[in-house]
Design a protein around this nucleic acid. Sequence first.
DNA 1: TTATCATTGTTATAATATAACGTTTGTTAT
DNA 2: ATAACAAACGTTATATTATAACAATGATAA
Lengths: 130, 130
Amino acid sequence: MAQAQTLSRNQQIVLNIIEKAKGPLKAYSILFNVQKKGINAPQQIYRALDKLIEMGKIHKIESKNAFVACRSSDCEISKATAFSICESCEMVDEISDTKLSKYLSSFNHKKGMKFKRFNLEFFGLCKKCK
Amino acid sequence: MAQAQTLSRNQQIVLNIIEKAKGPLKAYSILFNVQKKGINAPQQIYRALDKLIEMGKIHKIESKNAFVACRSSDCEISKATAFSICESCEMVDEISDTKLSKYLSSFNHKKGMKFKRFNLEFFGLCKKCK
DNA sequence: TTATCATTGTTATAATATAACGTTTGTTAT
DNA sequence: ATAACAAACGTTATATTATAACAATGATAA
């Protein structure tokens, strides 16, 4: 369990591609990029993605159905994610702001729900596109 | 523009269903529910959904590809949304917390991005499921 | 060894969403 | 009222995203 380091072959391939990418990648675009490496089916991509998410190596941008590598070395398990998303150029930036993270992690719903995890997505125009 | 009140026939039908539902509804489940009313194609659903979102009548739960009615009468345009989602029973609850909303609305990204909108999704176990 | 468990490869299919087209309805200005 | 325009409609087809199911392989541990 939580074999934090060892990635399987397919997991490594998928992670490499996501890490090299400049922006979020979609599952099928990953697939097209690895067909030369002998990966032929969506399942193989989605399985790798699932594990990488579990390990906190990547995150899913829910509003875009796309995946980005995690930069903040400390989020072993991705339970507190925040992103800024440019609506023009589609750039996505992971926000690692301790205060924000603490504020949200300690946020408690009135109706007695205790949170294990959150995902926050901000939208706007990035510096360049403004 | 922003004819805030008048909904078209299809928009009204779709909104009614979402409002009556106990939890988030998926587009195709809405579709199956309105085929008796003469709506036959996904496009008709998705078009209504898009408009209803624009008007702030409903919200999309991105992590579930599902739609819920907006309860807080003041969010004419849904630019600041937050939800609590139970991972067991799938219940979704809209969070309207003025402090949270202000905190996030005024949150500014270091890299000079100005936000127009955000969506926050909390996950955990609701009171019942705990 | 044998049992167990994660990973792989593969085929098929399900679920979610949009494109493109022409028609109809509703609104606004003259 | 009617012309002009915008919004909504209906329809067919297709694109995109994601999972089911099954058999084989490899790695780990009792």
